[in-house]
Simulated scan of single mutants.
Amino acid sequence: MSDGQTDGRGRGIELSVVCPFYNEALIIEEAVSRLIARMRKLSCSWELIVVNDGSTDGSEAIVERLCDAEPRLWLLSYDVNRGRGYALRQGIRHARGEIIVTMEIDLSWGEDIVERLYREITAHPECDAVVASPNMTGGGYRNVPWRRVLVSRVGNLIIRACMTNAVTMNTGMTRAYRAAVVKRIPFEEDGKEFHLEVLLKMVTLGYRLREIPCVLEWKEYKLAGRRKKRKSSSRINKLIVSHSLFSLFANPIRYVWALGVGVLILALGFFCIGCVLFVQGRVSVYALMLSVLFGSMAMLFFTLGVITHQGHTIQRELWLLREQLGGANGRDRGVRVVNRAAL
């Protein structure tokens, strides 16, 4: 599938849409059908790639039936659940379009989100990726529990402080990429940390990002039967920990030197207090000892800052080297490709 770059009629494919899913048998037929209906209105040539991340509820068979009726629909499938990041890496690897959009399969980021992302990235040739964000002016949340909204907003603020502030939405998958860029970058994360990894590496390698506002809505069929938790909500604590750790270790130079400056200011403050006490003939040794202690800590932070800066530079050079050699975003490892109508 990834060897050719045409839509079967000799035309180059302009847009690939990649949607992962896992155990979505209750909604998959309606969701894919609605998405195809939207995409049929596009004026560009396109393909839709849905990636079955090891579903066990019959979702795969439902999508296989849909492939019979739409030659531009592709199903990638494998038996073991590997995580959203692995599914997206497989979808990106097999995509043939010049622009690749990754998104939720149920259009929860807006009925017209594909068109808007594609229009934005094609209107700005200097841009390498476009991120849909409910956190910027003009965006928002609808039918999303307030706790999830709070976690999303606070989490993205923390990530922006610790890792990169290039965009306001770091944790969502709804984005558009230039295939020539995203296919060259080596990605490794299998879980939802993939979203952070993509942004970190794109920013580090000097690629340019844009954002568009959107409204994130939990569809009614996902809210039905409130006594049963939504799949992602049951793992929210795990996601908070994993995303926080990723952002903290991804770019420590952003806060190590800031901590060093803060501790140095404390050292200078205690030194000044000690000097004033000494001039006044009062006990100053404790203030001066604290000044020496905080000064030593500041030197330690600055040393760590130099080390992390050098490590960041080496890491960037390694990424550049791997990019030049060609990014490998996941090998097949038993991935099945289904498009019966096109074969």
Rank of each mutant, 00 (worst) to 15 (best):
S291K: 03
V182Q: 02
H312Q: 15
K41D: 15
I121N: 03
Q315S: 11
I273S: 14
I113T: 14
Q90I: 09
R148P: 01
Q5S: 13
A129E: 03
K228I: 09
L26P: 00
A328K: 12
V63S: 03
R96I: 05
V144K: 04
G58P: 00
G91M: 04
R230P: 06
S291N: 08
V203M: 04
R93K: 12
T6R: 11
W46L: 00
M163E: 11
E115D: 14
D57Q: 03
G206D: 10
G91S: 04
D190M: 03
D3C: 05
T303I: 05
M39D: 12
I113L: 05
V131D: 04
V292I: 15
L264G: 13
G225H: 02
V338Q: 01
W218V: 15
L288I: 12
M169R: 06
L26D: 08
G4V: 13
G85N: 09
L300M: 10
V285C: 05
G139W: 08
V335A: 11
V335M: 10
E323P: 00
Q90L: 09
W218I: 15
V154Q: 03
N143Y: 11
V114L: 01
L88S: 01
F294Q: 05
G139R: 06
R147E: 10
R82A: 13
D112E: 15
G4S: 14
E98W: 03
V130R: 05
N170C: 13
E47T: 07
R147L: 12
K229Y: 01
E111K: 07
V283A: 14
Y86R: 14
L239E: 14
Q5Y: 13
I212C: 05
I185C: 04
T303S: 11
S284C: 15
I240F: 02
A250Y: 05
F21R: 00
L88R: 06
G97N: 02
V130H: 06
E30C: 01
T313G: 12
V261S: 07
S2Q: 11
K183A: 08
V335Q: 01
I121V: 06
S242H: 07
C44E: 14
V17E: 02
R226L: 10
N329C: 07
E317Q: 14
H195T: 12
K229E: 11
Y22L: 06
E323F: 00
H94D: 07
L35Q: 09
L73P: 11
K222F: 14
L293M: 13
A328T: 12
R331Q: 13
A95C: 01
A298T: 02
F302S: 03
V338I: 15
F194S: 07
V17P: 10
G269L: 08
R84Y: 02
A129Q: 02
A250S: 15
S233C: 06
G330T: 03
K229M: 09
N156Q: 02
A328F: 05
R147T: 11
G305V: 07
D128T: 04
Y118A: 09
K183N: 08
I13E: 05
